[in-house]
C-alpha cells in the first residue's frame, strides 16, 4: 500500500502549473489528495509527476458577487462548511458539507478536487448541477467555462483534459425566497451517500399575477447513476403550483423513482436506491415547502 515512484512539483503560480502540465506526459494534479492519495496508495494511478496546486494562493477563497458567489478550486470543504457567506446565500451547501466525510478529510479536501474527481456518490457534483454552477477551466491555450451538466461525462469522467486545471466554480444567485432541503442516506456518518438529494423551491408572485406560486423548482440526486441527475419532469410538475399536497408530492416522487436507473453495488441494490429516492424526494419536497410557511 505505497505509491509507485513519481516526481513532484509545487508551483506557486497557476501559469507555472499549466506549463508543467503542458510539457509533461502522464502528470497528475494533486489538490487535497483526499481521493487521489488512496488511489496512489493502491497504485490504481501511477503518474510520473504530481503537480501540487495547493501552494497557489490565487486558487483559494470565496468571493461574493451580489447574492451569487465564486469559490476557487483549492477552497477546502471545511472553509465552505463554515463560511458565513455560503450560509447566507446558499444554506443548502453548508448543510450538505456536513455530510462530506469527516473533519480531518474536510480540512484538506477541496471543491475543485471533488468536482474533478466526479465520484458518482459525492455531494459537490450534485450541488453543482442543482445550483447550475459554471465550472471554470484553465489550459495551455486559454480558459473555458462549462455548465455543470456538460462538465460531468460519467462516473469519475469529466470534460477536464489532462493538461487543464479547474480554477473556480461560479454559483449564480438563486431567486429570492428560495427554500431548500437536503438529505442523504449513508451507512455511517461521513460515508459516501447511498443516495443524496437536494430540493430548491422558489416562491414568488403577487395578487396581480394570480397570487403566490412556485416559480422555480429544482431537484437533483446523486448515488443513483453514473453522475448526478436533475429530475426535469418532476421539477416541471412543481413549477406553477400554488399549493402542494400529499397527492402532488407522491406524483413528484414517483416521477423521480421512475426517472432514474440506479445500479446495485456492495452498499445497496438498485431497488433499494429507487425506494430511497422516492422517500427522500417526498420528505425533502415537503420540508422545503413547509419552510415557506415559517417565514
Amino acid at each position: 500500500m505505497k505509491p509507485a515512484p513519481f516526481d513532484y512539483a509545487a508551483p506557486a503560480h497557476l501559469d507555472e502549473a499549466l506549463a508543467i502540465l503542458a510539457r509533461t506526459e502522464n502528470a497528475k494534479v494533486i489538490a487535497g489528495g483526499q481521493s487521489l492519495m488512496p488511489m496512489l496508495n493502491f497504485r490504481l494511478v501511477r503518474p510520473d509527476l504530481l503537480v501540487d496546486i495547493s501552494r497557489i494562493a490565487a486558487l483559494r477563497g470565496i468571493t461574493g458577487r451580489g447574492r451569487g458567489m465564486s469559490i476557487s478550486a483549492m477552497t477546502s470543504h471545511h472553509a465552505v462548511h463554515t463560511s458565513p457567506l455560503v450560509k447566507e446565500h446558499f444554506p443548502i451547501i453548508s448543510e450538505a458539507m456536513g455530510h462530506v466525510a469527516h473533519l480531518a478529510i474536510r480540512n484538506r479536501g477541496t471543491i475543485g478536487g471533488s468536482i474533478s474527481h466526479a465520484d458518482p456518490a459525492a455531494e459537490w457534483p450534485m450541488l453543482a448541477c442543482l445550483l447550475d454552477a459554471k465550472i471554470h477551466l484553465a489550459g495551455p491555450t486559454g480558459t473555458r467555462t462549462l455548465d455543470a451538466q456538460a462538465f460531468f461525462h460519467g462516473a469519475m469522467t469529466t470534460a477536464l483534459a489532462p493538461d487543464e486545471v479547474l480554477t473556480k466554480v461560479d454559483l449564480p444567485a438563486l431567486p429570492r425566497h428560495t427554500r431548500h432541503a437536503f438529505d442523504e442516506v449513508a451507512l455511517r456518518t461521513g460515508d459516501y451517500a447511498i443516495v443524496a438529494a437536494g430540493v430548491l423551491l422558489s416562491v414568488g408572485g403577487s395578487p396581480l399575477t394570480g397570487g403566490k406560486r412556485i416559480l422555480d423548482a429544482r431537484i437533483a440526486l446523486t448515488g443513483v447513476g453514473e453522475m448526478p441527475i436533475r429530475m426535469r419532469d418532476a421539477e416541471a410538475l412543481l413549477k406553477g403550483q400554488k399549493a402542494i399536497d400529499d397527492q402532488l408530492i407522491e406524483r413528484v416522487a414517483c416521477l423521480v423513482r421512475d426517472g432514474i436507473q440506479p445500479s446495485s453495488d456492495l452498499r445497496a441494490s438498485a431497488d433499494f436506491r429507487r425506494e430511497l429516492s422516492f422517500s427522500l424526494t417526498k420528505r425533502l419536497v415537503k420540508s422545503a415547502w413547509e419552510q415557506r410557511s415559517q417565514s
Binding site: 489528495g33 492519495m37 480531518a104 484538506r108
Partner: peptide, 15 residues
C-alpha cells in the same frame, strides 16, 4: 493546527 490523515498526505506536502 488542523487534523489531517497522515496516510493521505505526502511528506513533501508537509514542507
Amino acid at each position: 493546527g488542523d487534523s489531517v490523515r497522515s496516510c493521505l498526505t505526502l511528506a513533501v506536502q508537509a514542507d
